[in-house]
Design a binder for these strands. Structure first.
Lengths: 231, 231, 231, 231
DNA sequence: CATGAATGAGACTTCATTCAT
DNA sequence: CATGAATGAAGTCTCATTCAT
């Protein structure tokens, strides 16, 4: 039962150990996505990764550890790709919209990663903090640019994150199509005090979304602190 | 290890069976709130309820059954109390704000119920449908009254629910005080196209919130279908 | 869930206690027949009998006790009816054949009783001894009459009983029709040394078989020791 | 509590996993023999095998699986040894008698295997079919050779099997000695229409019975379909 | 590193049996 | 007598984790 995914692809030229580890991570993503974090079992992850169950413990202390690693690297990978897509954008509203739409596009292109994020978000507080910090940069920028009238604080950031996750879940369930990203962007911009008509224009403007790029980050990179938003 | 809660209080004058059942329900709420639905175990519920583990199965088929019963009755109880609090209100924006604030007040007054709702919402689709239908009534009314410009559909309702749950979680974690309800109300009203200044006024107007009333509904009431919002 | 059967019918004019007991016995027969003795549960018997589970213990010490009572009474009832059917027959070969055929007819007419006998035979050694003693009488008579050349001892009686039970099971499963009784009779007679042609004639001679008569014996009758065969 | 038996002996030079599996199979035989299939518990099997209860599930899916494996291997082992013992015999009556006597000798030499067969025969329809097919070959041969006048069909085969099992049970209970096999052989031969005197001669002729040979078959052998009788 | 058998705690569930009403 | 809630032992099975190879 061989799950092969982005991590394995990334590690294809590395040593055997790194490749085994990568296979485990791909398998973990698949299992978290399918069963949720709680119901995921180490044995099942090992089975999907085509390694003996004991091998899991050579690479990870326990289920929490692999979940943390997986979500961390997914988040970083997404952040990197989103960053690239936004490098030329200055306007904070556009940046936010672009980031949100790009985020959902990436997640939709790799539904297992999307579901894994959703289904282990509760168990990966690290992820939350990371996404908050990415997002905060653009929201603060918008306030400075006079675009957003709403005060930015952890509460509102949490609220926005929950909206984006909710929209992502709807999209992945198939309840809504790719317009989900624009819809939620528009809602958030309005909520932040951005003029309604412009919110609509920005959120629905045609943009080029990057497809999914499997060049995931190397293991244990220096934590990124780029002044930018994940979403 | 005796957990005593609203259900036990409600059942204190009923027969022995009803009292045991109520103890189990209170215990289930406590465990769901603390551990989440998945991690909750029947044995632990029985232990908290101070009954033998076999006793659980005298009253409920399995964990799903008690969860369904518990969420159903919490939701109905909340709905009833929120309804009462709003009986005199006609304006849809006020109704929404009142419902949301009342909901969060009730949940905050009984944090275990609040956490239980949050942590088993994923596993209680019934609850979701119920809350959606309660909320939809007031949102549609607002559209008819010309207060909301946003089109109401399942996507936006889901989004609003996720915002409210997110705010509730923040409140229950203690990250934010009782202003959480007003803040999220205001955000939602803005998002729906309600004028910003009025949104603020409505969301922050002083209102009398009912405290928690433990008169939970009797078992198996006729399902409420009142044209009103749970939140 | 009301099972009503021969015992209930028999007890319809007795006191309430006797009727409850009778309902339990009918239910026990049904459950033993359907699930086998091991898999039968007291709760299920009580449920089928439409009484509370505690009521079972008012009437029977445990599952063994009801099984013993039930098989004892079925066996006695069958014995009584078989006796009646054979009262005029003197020839031992005819008696054996008649008894066997009558036995299988009764069991087939009341398949639950038949299955219950088969499926609890292992657990009711009493039944075995009883059937052995009934059968022995006719076999010994056959030897005295010079019809059977085979020595009669517990081994051969056991063998014959197992043949009859095997044939009964085949009949109740529907693998074979009502000829099962004649076939097994013929086989046994041959085996006992009875001339082949006569064995065939006796085993297949048309006889009048009594239908099932629900007048089961009163409770705890003096054990019958009539010099006759159950089968 | 260490049960050691033929399977363990057979596996003594194999890997650890095979040895544990063999211990479980020996233990299962012991428990089935002692308690019957229904009453046997996985925990008890593990206890007798001196392994943790979880270990059982490393080797077998459930009780059915180990029962199927055990009966399959016992049956094949018996069949192989019986085949060997009969390789030179052409006469169908002799073959039947030899097979029956050899079968009972093997079972009596290894009473746990005998009891296990008896007590799980009901739950192993596979076993029944296998024995039927082995036996059928010799019975049909006897008809072709003009030795048996009785028509061979599933009903009579079932009947014969029940006789043999009944005799085996009597032998294992100690109610009868090693003459049981000859007695039941003679009875069956008579029943099949084989001349009485010859039946006696064949059934009681001195033959060399192989003792029990613990070289059980390797796991998953090609199923034997030799045109011969198990009994 | 990789393996995979073995472990044993613990989850779920059933059920014979008791006992207060 | 009848009830049926309550009990707790016992059974089934899963799973994170360890360890010898």
């Amino acid at each position: 039962m061989n799950i092969s995914g982005p991590f394995a692809l990334e590690a294809r030229n590395l040593g055997k150990s790194a490749r085994t580890r990568a296979r485990l991570m791909d398998a973990a993503v698949a299992v978290f996505a399918r069963d949720g974090f709680e119901a995921a079992s180490v044995n099942e992850i090992a089975r999907l990764a085509d390694v003996a169950n004991g091998t899991f413990y050579v690479h990870f202390k326990d289920k929490d550890a692999i979940a943390a690693d997986v979500t961390f690297r997914i988040a970083n990978d997404f952040a990197r790709q989103i960053d690239e897509a936004m490098s030329q954008i200055e306007d904070a509203a556009e940046r936010f919209s672009c980031a949100t739409r790009q985020f959902m596009e990436l997640a939709a292109a790799q539904p297992r990663w999307g579901w894994a994020l959703i289904r282990s978000a509760w168990y990966a507080p690290e992820l939350h903090r990371q996404m908050e910090s990415f997002m905060r940069a653009d929201l603060d920028r918008g306030v400075k640019q006079g675009l957003f009238t709403r005060t930015i604080d952890p509460f509102i950031i949490d609220t926005i994150l929950s909206m984006i996750f909710s929209a992502l879940a709807a999209r992945l369930r198939g309840d809504v199509g790719e317009e989900a990203a624009s819809r939620v962007s528009e809602l958030v911009l309005c909520m932040l005090g951005y003029p309604s008509a412009q919110a609509h224009a920005v959120a629905w403007s045609p943009i080029v979304l990057k497809g999914f790029n499997t060049q995931v980050l190397p293991r244990d990179p220096k934590p990124r602190r780029a002044a930018t938003s994940l979403v």
